[in-house]
């Protein structure tokens, strides 16, 4: 709507900024909070269903019990969260540091692309989980195998999304900046990279979620700390409520990390349709 206003304003001055800001806040609240509402509904249904079905808390604790447990055990959960968080973030950072340069090499070098792409795809077909015991064998019980697993599981989407983002650029944009005398360095930073950022960040978002999975699975195999380890402990003690509390903590961590990436994206990349 707002954009047709601008069109109609035609050759007049363009002070439509305020109109747009108003439009944004007029977004229907139901649409805005739909995810929260649905979650709340599921939680309420769960809370009602468990006593009705007569389930014991060893089988399925209620949301209130889980929440209560998270409050009483916050210190334990937090301490283990730090461990897992460190592994996840390290794994993700390594993925970015290796994945992005790898993607650039693939983009700029045809022979390299030919050589590495089949290997990458073949590697991607290996279930990374199956590598966890081997990683423990090689790297021990510390954080190294977890970070490695988080890295292995999360770097593929970063490589692919970066390559695809760079390749899908309109060739005419390159002609345009070339005609202005841009060298490849300038072409990359003025056009290629900014145009690829939405795709790259799409890869980052998938990768950060996968890195959480990688780290937790690493902890399942062999660990003395971390949320995955805590979950195994709870399991062996038949403490289903703590088990659930840990699962909730893991997913909170995943969501928070996702939003951190999203926040960074908003800071550095302008979305194509942000104004619509």
């Amino acid at each position: 709507m707002a954009s047709t206003d601008v069109v109609r304003a035609g050759r007049a001055t363009g002070n439509q900024g305020k109109v747009m800001a108003k439009k944004k806040s007029r977004e229907p609240w139901l649409e805005r909070y739909s995810a929260l509402l649905l979650t709340a509904a599921v939680i309420v249904a769960w809370q009602i269903f468990v006593p009705l079905a007569g389930l014991s808390k060893f089988v399925l604790p209620t949301p209130l019990e889980i929440a209560g447990r998270m409050v009483t055990e916050w210190r334990l959960l937090l301490q283990n969260s730090y461990v897992t968080l460190f592994e996840v973030v390290s794994g993700f950072v390594v993925s970015v540091l290796i994945g992005v340069p790898l993607a650039l090499s693939i983009f700029y070098s045809r022979p390299f692309e030919r050589a590495i792409y089949p290997i990458l795809v073949a590697f991607q077909t290996i279930p990374k989980v199956a590598l966890a015991p081997l990683l423990v064998l090689y790297l021990g019980y510390g954080w190294a195998p977890k970070i490695t697993l988080a890295f292995l599981i999360s770097f593929f989407p970063i490589v692919i999304s970066t390559v695809v983002g760079l390749q899908s650029l309109d060739k005419n944009l390159v002609s345009l900046v070339r005609s202005m005398g841009a060298n490849e360095w300038q072409t990359f930073f003025k056009v290629r990279l900014p145009a690829a950022l939405p795709s790259i960040f799409g890869g980052f978002k998938v990768a950060i979620s996968l890195a959480v999975i990688g780290a937790v699975i690493g902890e399942y195999v062999a660990a003395e700390r971390g949320l995955g380890y805590l979950q195994l402990q709870a399991n062996s003690l038949f403490d289903t409520t703590l088990n659930f509390a840990t699962v909730v903590t893991i997913s909170i961590m995943g969501v928070l990390l996702y939003f951190v990436v999203d926040f960074v994206e908003r800071k550095v990349a302008y979305k194509r349709d942000a104004a619509k």
């Binding site: 954009s3 601008v6 069109v7 363009g14 747009m20 349709d273």
Partner: peptide
């Protein structure tokens, strides 16, 4: 100060 997407 407008963005291209705001223009016809």
């Amino acid at each position: 100060n407008k963005y291209p997407s705001e223009l016809s």
